[in-house]
């Protein structure tokens, strides 16, 4: 299955690179320099970010569900996405920062929300305490985002930020990719290395411990990795919901329903799904500006409903 998903990612990445308002092949004949810079500065970052952010969200979702032993958990419940959104909004306002400034603000916000989460949950907290602390942090940060929005210096700033929060990969630049890529990749690698330990969590926390899993260290690593993989994505692209929740459910049956084994295919499927959604957004008629985060929610919410109905 992994080979198939990797191939799908490659095909979607090529489609994404070939796609845009300008026909690059035609432009290449006339002005190769311009075609080259369009490709490197616009197409490449967009395609790369879609793959990486999707992979980060998919892997984080699978890891969160494994860690909390709850099929309805998503990386959002831990708070770093809200932290990243708040950090980016504040940087956008008070520093008047450009997209890079907002991304750095977002990363700082994700980091601070992680520290707040660990402080609230306490050392060696069990998964239940961790998820409660995460929900509390997310709610607090959600309110803070609303407060920041209601204190917007101008209606234009408010409009811009609202739009930014909805999540998009339009006009992302190479520096944004360079900033987010290493952090997301580190997060994914950390999650992949925790996968065998997360598998044993299927038997419960005590049994995992009895099999030699250092529970609190493993939890701390997984939470840090989720914060990296999702926080860095939100910091450059805004909030993109539902990928982390849905993707693990799509691939887990093919991973023998083992929660840790689902992390790698979830990363691949997340990359494919977000790339496909970003292509779909660009296929819409020019007048209809549907945000990427809105589209993933439009697909995700009904799927989530089906999931719940199927469980009854």
């Amino acid at each position: 299955m992994r080979t198939g998903l990797a191939l799908l990612c490659a095909v979607l990445a090529l489609a994404s690179l070939a796609m845009g308002p300008v026909d690059l092949a035609a432009l290449w004949a006339r002005d190769p320099e311009l075609a080259r810079s369009l490709f490197i500065e616009l197409r490449l970052p967009r395609t790369g970010l879609a793959l990486l952010i999707g992979a980060g969200l998919g892997a984080s979702g699978a890891a969160a569900q494994a860690l909390f032993r709850n099929p309805l958990a998503s990386p959002d419940v831990l708070g770093p996405s809200s932290g990243a959104a708040l950090g980016a909004v504040l940087a956008g306002y008070f520093l008047g920062a450009g997209v890079i400034g907002m991304a750095i603000g977002g990363l700082a916000g994700a980091g601070l929300s992680l520290l707040l989460l660990l402080a609230l949950a306490g050392r060696g907290a069990g998964a239940t305490r961790l998820v409660l602390a995460g929900v509390a942090v997310s709610m607090l940060l959600g309110v803070a985002i609303n407060l920041a929005l209601s204190l917007a210096p101008s209606p234009f700033a408010l409009y811009d930020l609202m739009f930014w929060l909805m999540g998009s990969l339009n006009d992302r630049s190479l520096p944004q990719l360079a900033l987010a890529a290493p952090l997301i990749l580190i997060g994914i690698v950390l999650l992949l290395r925790a996968a065998p330990a997360l598998d044993t969590l299927a038997l419960g926390e005590e049994v995992a411990q009895s099999l030699g899993v250092g529970l609190s260290a493993m939890q701390a690593r997984v939470v840090l990795a989720i914060a990296l993989a999702t926080g860095a994505g939100v910091a450059v692209a805004g909030s993109i919901g539902f990928i982390g929740l849905i993707v693990p459910h799509l691939v887990r049956p093919f991973a023998g329903h083992r929660p840790g084994a689902a992390i790698a295919p979830s990363a691949l499927a997340g990359a494919a799904l977000l790339s496909a959604a970003d292509i779909a957004v660009r296929l819409l008629p020019a007048g209809l500006d549907l945000r990427l985060g809105v589209l993933t929610a439009l697909i995700g919410a009904p799927f989530f409903l089906c999931l719940i109905m199927g469980r009854r």
Binding site: P71, P196, A197, D199, T200, A202, L203, A208, L211, G212, V213, R252, G256, H257, R258, P259
Partner: peptide, 15 residues
């Protein structure tokens, strides 16, 4: 998780 019984037993071999 709806893990097949044999795969669950395998988890007892350790991570």
């Amino acid at each position: 998780w709806p893990i097949p019984a044999a795969a669950l037993v395998q988890l007892g071999m350790g991570p």
